[in-house]
Design a binder for these strands. Structure first.
Lengths: 159, 159
DNA sequence: ATAATTGCAAAGTCTTTGCAGTTTG
DNA sequence: CAAACTGCAAAGACTTTGCAATTAT
């Protein structure tokens, strides 16, 4: 569990439950269906700074384990929908599998080139530098410019 | 055509030909085969700051057009080999297709969210800021930390 | 001559789509 | 009830792999 989504009401302790998810869906004109609640709560459970992104297969597997079966195709369709409305961010990890995570406050990602861990990096520190650096290119950074850094996570750094 | 690869000898005008590619391959203990020369020259031809990355299919297609047929599977195997030795960088564009480009000087990429153009961004400006920003996380950035910025390219920015 | 590399075809993944049946608002 | 959504199965797109034939050193 972890914290705060964009305009999402949340419980005092930072976690968020079914009701919050329902609100989130309605805010975007989407219907509240069991599959969507299941998928979103799976993502919410994964919301730790490390490995907060899951692949469609991982989401599906977690739901199976919880006896909240949702078809894989539905997972894909749901992710597609949620990405479109901006509730979820897609991220290509190993160039071949997409992973999805709740779109929290603007942040970037650091992928460990050794163990594959995905670490969330708050944007505030980077944003300014990025904006300035990209100015010369005429390129307009999108608000939530999700970067992907590559390197070694703290753990692999030791080994 | 464009410029300078890592430790590659190059012609005075910055372009580089078959001999340079041969040298490049030998430096990495790889054999100089027709398919490899073809694939690498295709990448070299794409080396402009914009859209310098090509997908396996694009590389294959260009080679077919040039009557230098190489099997698609060979293109994939070649890219895999070249990425392993560090001559080429892989980049997932739309989360679902890998694209490949010559590993030139350290640089990052800016992908236009509208037209898909990939623009090369020199690293020097960003590197310092990145190193500093990631310090707090305990994450060790890899040397060639290839970032992927997202936003609008100069052209789409107008439209 | 020997080991690396290729082409071809088959197999594998991950993802998308058609459609009839369900469910939500 | 109408529109949105789902499950299932089939299709698609991209990538990998087995193996015999070819090629570089």
């Amino acid at each position: 569990m972890a914290g705060m989504q964009q305009g999402i009401s949340e419980t005092p302790d930072g976690s968020f439950g079914d009701d919050d998810i329902r609100t989130l869906l309605r805010e975007h004109g989407l219907r509240c269906t069991a599959p969507r609640l299941a998928v979103l709560s799976a993502l919410a459970e994964a919301e730790s700074p490390v490995n907060h992104h899951l692949s469609a297969a991982q989401i599906h597997q977690r739901l199976v384990e919880q006896r909240r079966d949702v078809d894989l195709a539905t997972v894909y369709r749901t992710m597609s929908t949620l990405v479109r409305v901006g509730v979820v961010h897609a991220l290509a990890v190993d160039e071949n599998v997409s992973t999805y995570g709740l779109a929290a406050q603007p942040h970037h990602h650091a992928v460990c080139t050794r163990c594959g861990a995905i670490i969330e990096v708050p944007a505030d520190q980077l944003s300014a530098a990025l904006a300035q650096a990209s100015q010369g290119t005429g390129f307009l950074l999108s608000d939530q410019a999700g970067l992907t850094l590559h390197g070694l996570c703290p753990e692999c750094r030791r080994a």
